[in-house]
Nucleic acid binder design. Structure first.
Lengths: 227, 227
DNA sequence: AGAAAAATGTGATTAAAATCACACAGGAGA
DNA sequence: TCTCCTGTGTGATTTTAATCACATTTTTCT
């Protein structure tokens, strides 16, 4: 099914492209609805094309043996898949859905063709990859300079939340296992740390959500660096 | 002083550019000799332009308080500085010389102008940033899945070495402190681990160099992942 | 509804690495 | 040559977080 140009324009990655480029993309891209757990691609796969999230959440990860490290969680409006292009390199990471949703998909050969025709698309790609680079840098920074509490706090702040009367609410679309993988720690440690935060009144744990009561305190914890 | 096109062509980043683009770059770039310890730019600086190393070694790092994490070490032929472009974002990392050397420098405004004129330069930038992304991913992987021994081994393998009759020789252009910052650990731990490697016959520590005796064993250690 | 399977909570133990505290070496400079 | 300073080597101690081992809760499936 063809993608509408209005829908493309809503996506930050595409919003500043020329009408001509947009038209070409709309002509070649198509919709890809997905279920929770769907694997867009795996670490080591050949270049996979570009995905843009209209809805749903996707985890971007790296694994070894039975451990995984989530590099970041993508929300609607995010675009991913650019990291293995150019140069036919295998994808350094895997991408898997946390929730059901819909994405727009641009296959690699089409993308390649379009890149050659439209320098503004090339520029967009450059922006995407640079942004990712920035995020990775900050991840390295966290792993190197922050303890588990700080990393957990940081990750909670990055997760999508919406305001309610007693605080910001994060829907639990992920398990503690996932959270541990984001933070780069063990499930049990995350569990204990969450409980610690609760005892300190920073947040409240509910069955299917986490309510952040004291946002400022959480930010303070997230900013703490060791030594 | 103007840069010669032959010299540009030697640098991997520039080697595949069109003659026209090369000529333009040669016209605007200039030589920048530097001493050991010279700071090309610091974390947080505005976009700084592009540097290409003709000789010397540069550390690319990130710091917090009195701790630093070296993201990687650049050798001659490497190009850096692309990470803060486009979009006038502050540089996520700092770059400082480990040894004296010479680089070619392309100021940011000139670079910006050239990028708009030459799509192949844009493509080159994209390649540079993608490559960096790949390196960062692998750094995150190491920090998340490998212990100090493995990370140290990995880093020793990445450092520039040349073959001699009893093994590969790495010149000590860096202190153990630096090595610890590359590995993401403490100086003492690195020291002990080096000694451990020496005891196991993997390498030999000399006053101003490290001789790798058993390259294969070192590679094995580097590949070990926890759990 | 009831059984099975995930996911979560919590204590006890272990392990890895950071930190502390010095001794010592070697090179740079007066 | 003698000091000072930076870099190294090494033991002892502490800290943090990983691991192990279950109990308990919640969800899912039939």
């Amino acid at each position: 099914m063809a993608v509408t140009m209005q829908e493309l324009k809503v996506l930050p990655a595409f919003s500043r492209l020329s009408p001509l480029a947009l038209e070409h993309i709309a002509g070649t891209a198509h919709y890809l609805p997905f279920a929770a757990g769907f694997a867009f691609y795996q670490q080591g796969d050949p270049p996979t094309g570009l995905f843009s999230l209209l809805s749903g959440q996707v985890k971007f990860y790296r694994h070894s043996k039975d451990k995984i490290q989530i590099l970041y969680v993508l929300h609607e409006g995010s675009t991913f898949g650019a990291e293995s292009l150019p140069n036919d390199m295998p994808s350094p990471c895997g991408a898997q859905a946390l929730t059901p949703g819909t994405s727009i998909y641009l296959p690699p050969n089409e993308l390649h063709k379009l890149l050659l025709e439209h320098p503004d698309l090339l520029f967009m790609q450059l922006e995407l990859v640079t942004k990712q680079l920035r995020q990775f840098t900050s991840l390295v920074h966290s792993l190197a300079f922050r303890d588990v509490s700080a990393r957990l706090a940081e990750n909670l702040l990055k997760l999508k939340s919406y305001p309610t009367k007693d605080g910001f609410c994060i829907e639990r679309t992920f398990s503690q296992q996932d959270l541990a993988a984001m933070v780069g720690s063990a499930r049990e440690v995350v569990c204990r740390t969450l409980k610690k935060f609760e005892k300190e009144g920073v947040l409240r744990l509910e069955r299917s959500s986490i309510i952040i009561c004291d946002l400022n305190r959480l930010k303070e914890i997230a900013d703490q660096e060791i030594r």
